[in-house]
């Protein structure tokens, strides 16, 4: 094999994960743009999402949903960079933080399904577009 062929292979191997990361970030941004549009429609005073509000949502002990899951922390753990555990079934859950799991919040169907299901389990109702955007913004910085 020539040096040239080798270097092409090496470059492709290096570039692949980078493009995957970039694609992940672009998909996440697109989801956030969608939630921002909905948040604005619901409240014309909306400006930007807040990681701080997202963290409060994440850590709050709601106690208004299923008794086994008073908080997002019940399954995704106090440190979202760690592996979580489903408080109803014991099954392990990949970290919720984007830094540990770059594929998080990149597939609209998965994201919508889990917000609907997990918010109902914890809070007793679905999360609003504002809450969804805040949550993802918090996880992006984790």
């Amino acid at each position: 094999m020539t040096i040239r062929a080798l270097s092409i292979i090496a470059c492709t191997a290096l570039a692949l994960p980078l493009t995957a990361l970039a694609a992940g970030a672009a998909d996440r941004d697109a989801i956030l743009v969608g939630y921002a549009r909905q948040a604005k429609a619901a409240d014309s005073g909306f400006t930007t999402f807040s990681a701080q509000r997202g963290e409060a949502l994440y850590r709050n002990q709601w106690g208004s949903g299923d008794v086994r899951t008073p908080s997002c922390v019940s399954c995704h753990t106090a440190d979202p960079r760690q592996i979580g555990r489903n408080a109803k079934t014991g099954r392990l859950i990949e970290p919720a933080a984007v830094s540990s799991n770059p594929q998080r919040y990149t597939d609209t169907a998965t994201v919508d399904k889990h917000f609907a299901r997990d918010c109902k389990s914890v809070i007793g109702r679905d999360c609003t577009p504002l809450e969804r955007g805040d949550y993802i913004t918090f996880m992006q910085g984790q």
Binding site: R85, N86, A87, K88, T89, G90, R91
Partner: peptide, 11 residues
Amino acid sequence: PKVVTKSNCLA
């Protein structure tokens, strides 16, 4: 805490 429930066979 690693078991949680009887149905968690994997534990």
